[in-house]
């Protein structure tokens, strides 16, 4: 089974708009909404819930005040500053390392499971989808992303579907690493702004670090032509193909308001601009499909 991850570094570059569009073009895909902080794909795909499970992140420590003698040993050893003056655990600072539990001479500290979010499986008009929802302020979102991907792979196997398309989170940290680790191809969506270029370079470094083949799509390309050229130059130097360009347009928002993908929107809308927009995305998807399924494994990652 092949896996494609869509990430961008910078938020608001168009990851979800594109991923949802790919969903309506792919004949046989499973979707994984891995932006677990703020999953937006359901707003367009209107999934029908099949099942859900609770997700438990790192545990947190809890002090039994009846046993605690306030000796302070736990506080001396806690490196996260999670134990207050009056010996109450700040659960947002606690990483669940359990050092305090062994430090306490009175056995007054235990670890408790932390409900940190949910993973749900659902059915959309384009096929099955797995999605995660992280609890507010929770950590270990990388673990949750990994679990969402696991469920998506199971859905793919159970329904004989291929590939898995992953809508990734913004940034370049733990959840992003979890979203791209072990995938076959990463699509980097970027906008031609100074922030977009800066963040693109960071995620290109990240894909190189993990040796995952990457391709780039420039969104909102007509905002700044010079910056587009800079991106293309930089990508050529790094051996990363730029496989598409999309214009700055409110088509994405209009489609979003109608709860449609831009592909569906363009089919119903008699506007040539919308049709061109959709055609550009079709071409990008064609490129992605052929890279996922037609390139021999040994040649992947090489610059053609």
């Amino acid at each position: 089974m092949k896996q494609l991850a869509v990430i961008s570094g910078k938020g608001g570059s168009g990851k979800t708009t594109l991923t949802a569009a790919f969903a309506s073009l792919a004949k046989n895909a499973v979707l994984a909404d891995c932006d677990v902080d703020a999953a937006d794909m359901p707003l367009i795909l209107k999934p029908e819930l099949l099942g859900g499970e609770d997700y438990f992140g790192l545990p947190f420590a809890s002090i039994n005040p009846e046993l605690c003698t306030k000796c302070g040993r736990c506080r001396d050893l806690c490196r996260y500053g999670a134990i207050s003056e009056n010996f109450v655990i700040n659960t947002y600072s606690c990483e669940g390392c359990a050092v305090c539990t062994v430090a306490c001479p009175e056995n007054a500290i235990s670890l408790e499971t932390r409900f940190s979010g949910q993973v749900v499986s659902s059915k959309t008009r384009f096929g099955p989808m797995a999605a995660g929802a992280l609890g507010i302020g929770e950590d270990a979102s990388g673990k949750l992303v990994a679990l969402v991907r696991k469920r998506a792979q199971e859905l793919a196997e159970a329904n004989s579907r291929d590939p898995v398309i992953i809508d990734g989170p913004p940034g370049a940290g733990c959840p992003v690493i979890a979203a791209i680790a072990g995938t076959d191809l990463v699509l980097l969506v970027c906008e031609p702004t100074v922030s977009g270029i800066h963040d693109l370079k960071r995620v290109i470094e990240l894909t190189a670090h993990f040796r995952i083949p990457a391709v780039v799509c420039i969104n909102k390309c007509d905002i700044n032509e010079e910056n587009c050229l800079k991106i293309e130059e930089f990508c050529t130097e790094s051996g990363i193909p730029v496989i598409g360009r999309l214009p700055y347009d409110d088509i994405a928002t209009k489609a979003m308001l109608r709860e449609e993908t831009v592909i569906e929107y363009a089919v119903r809308e008699e506007s040539s601009k919308a049709r061109e927009f959709a055609d550009s995305i079709r071409k990008i998807w064609g490129q992605l499909e052929s890279r996922l399924f037609e390139v021999p494994v040994k040649d992947r990652g090489k610059n053609p």
């Binding site: 938020g11 902080d37 703020a38 947002y92 992280l134 507010i136 302020g137 929770e138 950590d139 979102s141 989170p169 913004p170 940034g171 940290g173 959840p175």
Partner: peptide, 14 residues
């Protein structure tokens, strides 16, 4: 602050 609603956001905003 960073985007999202996870731990790093609360660390930045808290």
């Amino acid at each position: 602050s960073p985007p999202g609603v996870a731990c790093p956001v609360l660390a930045a905003v808290g």
